[in-house]
């Protein structure tokens, strides 16, 4: 059971500091990237009025997510942020499902991936806020009820990043640890396939959706 927290790391000394690379995560992230690119390529390769199966999948997917974005913001902003949301959701979905295949691991199991996704959403939301309200209006938001609430508002904004990324990380990591413990207890006989299906497919999909939804809503709250 000692393999619980072990990650294959590549440590390179760099001017007195040790630069650490989590190899599995990086490789898995690239595999997911390639899968997304392949999906996009085949969906858009030969577009026709009567679509092929891959094109139908792509169209449904994009339509649904654009609809979600336009619901939360308005039509124009929805068109603007739709591609980002589609890419984010597809990436998270495929990352969470990657654990299904043998010899593969979820990139989201490492805290670095969800945290960087959360930070990306955070910066985009605040950039959108500055664009929409102007710098003065944006700053004014922080002094909203009374002026000395500023530090607490600031912590509240940062806590959003922590909560959104740790939610994804905790769920995926928790799922994989539970599967490991149960397969250890039952000698991998009966339960693990069902548990794997539940945690990977079901929880993974829901958490990817929640992450995307919250990113949309954070952007929408900043814009309005």
């Amino acid at each position: 059971m000692e393999e619980l927290g072990r990650i294959h790391q590549l440590i390179i000394p760099f001017f007195g500091h040790n630069m650490t690379f989590n190899l599995e995560v990086i490789v898995m992230t690239w595999i997911v990237f390639i899968m997304i690119l392949a999906f996009g390529f085949f969906a858009a390769k030969n577009r026709r009025i009567i679509p092929g199966p891959v094109q139908i999948m792509g169209e449904l997917f994009v339509n649904q997510l654009y609809g979600l974005t336009e619901d939360a913001m308005d039509k124009e902003l929805g068109q603007k942020y739709g591609p980002l949301i589609c890419a984010l959701f597809l990436f998270l979905l495929l990352s969470n499902w990657a654990g299904l295949l043998p010899f593969m691991e979820e990139p989201t199991k490492d805290l670095n991936t969800p945290l960087s996704m959360g930070l990306m959403g955070f910066f985009i939301a605040h950039y959108a806020g500055i664009r929409a309200k102007g710098f003065k209006g944006y700053i004014k938001e922080y002094f909203e009820p009374i002026f000395f609430m500023m530090p607490l508002n600031l912590i509240g904004e940062l806590a959003k990043v922590v909560s959104i990324s740790f939610r994804l990380f905790g769920n995926i990591m928790g799922g994989s640890i539970i599967i490991m413990v149960v397969s250890h207890l039952t000698y991998s006989v009966l339960l693990p396939p069902f548990l794997n299906a539940f945690f990977t497919i079901f929880v993974g999909t829901i958490q990817a959706f929640v992450f995307t939804m919250l990113t949309i809503v954070y952007i929408a709250v900043q814009v309005k």
Partner: peptide, 25 residues
């Protein structure tokens, strides 16, 4: 009014979450 209501809900939740954030701090 689902979009508006969801935004309002989030603002209300953010305010009520502030005590949790004080505990975190």
């Amino acid at each position: 009014e689902a979009g508006l209501l969801t935004r309002t809900m989030l603002v209300g939740q953010a305010v009520s979450e502030s005590t949790g954030i004080y505990a975190l701090v």
